[in-house]
């Protein structure tokens, strides 16, 4: 009666596939779990919006270091944070150390702006509300040069579309790292977050750091959060789903994004895996107990 151990792994794959597909096909979602780290991140962005009212030119930098392998988690995180920045009219610039991120840097803000325009009737403009610095190779060397640059116009020269910096309204008054109050870094790739943390700073100024990580890197990222090395953290797709919930509370007309859908399917998939682990362990215990009894006789 060793059913658990003889189960074909393909049957488990099929079971997982069916279970996670159900909420996607029926377009259903459940309320996500409250994430304290996402709450803190939300408040940090609200603080930036308040500081923006002081009138000093400032640009939030989003290092969207995502790739197809981390897209499922980093993309919803980037989307909700961009949406929040756009709604609060906080200018931001997108940059990446990962060459595969190039299409995301172009598409994501455009898609969100279209969605927001339909909802609010307001308009947002490239070059005024956001800028795409594109993929920048060089990792550590690039970040160090960026942080120490006395003239960011000279450092970047052009945006990703080869538009000179001086022609972009958003870049007026942005000269050094001191004009960048916050860095939002989103990645799941090993070693990428660390180089931003280590080198994106100057002697006079250390920008507020917000990090969006994948589920795998949560235990590692949490070290930085509890030691206040980062001021905000989005923990995988769960963090993005709760952030969506926070946005939906403040903006009731908002259409739900896909972080909530992914989270719903993920929750059901996790329950299935817990059940399967439970069954497997019970099966092992049963075998152990049965063998022990047979040996005694």
């Amino acid at each position: 009666m060793n059913y658990g151990l003889k189960l074909d792994s393909r049957l488990i794959f099929l079971l997982v596939f069916i279970v996670v597909a159900i909420p996607l096909v029926y377009d259903s979602s459940i309320k996500p779990a409250k994430m304290e780290t996402a709450n803190v991140t939300y408040q940090e962005l609200e603080k930036l919006a308040e500081n923006q009212k002081n009138g000093k030119p400032a640009l939030v930098l989003i290092a969207a270091d995502l790739a197809p392998s981390t897209q499922s988690e980093n993309e919803p995180q980037t989307s909700v944070l961009i949406e929040h920045l756009l709604r609060r009219r906080i200018p931001f610039g997108l940059i990446s150390l990962i060459p595969f991120a190039t299409p995301y840097l172009e598409q994501m803000p455009q898609e969100i702006v279209t969605k927001l325009a339909q909802e609010t009737g307001e308009t947002w403009e490239y070059g005024k509300d956001w800028v795409n610095f594109g993929y920048r190779p060089g990792s550590t060397i690039m970040i160090q040069k960026f942080a120490k640059s006395k003239d960011l116009h000279e450092f970047f020269k052009t945006d990703a579309q080869a538009i000179p910096m001086k022609k972009l309204e958003i870049m007026k008054g942005i000269k050094t790292i001191q004009d960048i109050p916050a860095l939002i870094e989103l990645t799941g790739t090993v070693g990428v977050f660390n180089v931003w943390l280590q080198f994106f700073r100057s002697d006079q100024h250390v920008p507020t750091l917000i990090h969006g990580c994948t589920a795998i890197t949560i235990p590692e990222a949490y070290n930085y959060f509890i030691t206040n090395q980062i001021s905000g953290l989005l923990e995988g797709v769960a963090g993005a789903a709760w952030y969506e919930e926070l946005l939906s509370e403040v903006y009731p007309a908002r259409k739900p994004g896909h972080a909530l859908k992914i989270m719903t399917a993920l929750s059901i998939g996790n329950i299935l895996i817990i059940v399967l682990i439970g069954i497997g362990n019970l099966q092992e215990l049963w075998n152990y107990w049965k063998n022990k009894r047979t040996r005694n006789f």
């Binding site: 997982v16 596939f17 996670v20 996607l24 499922s72 589920a215 995988g236 998939g269 996790n270 895996i273």
Partner: peptide, 11 residues
């Protein structure tokens, strides 16, 4: 958390 991340990729 690794299982969560892999499942998220599938989803």
């Amino acid at each position: 958390t690794t299982i969560m991340a892999r499942l998220a990729l599938l989803i």
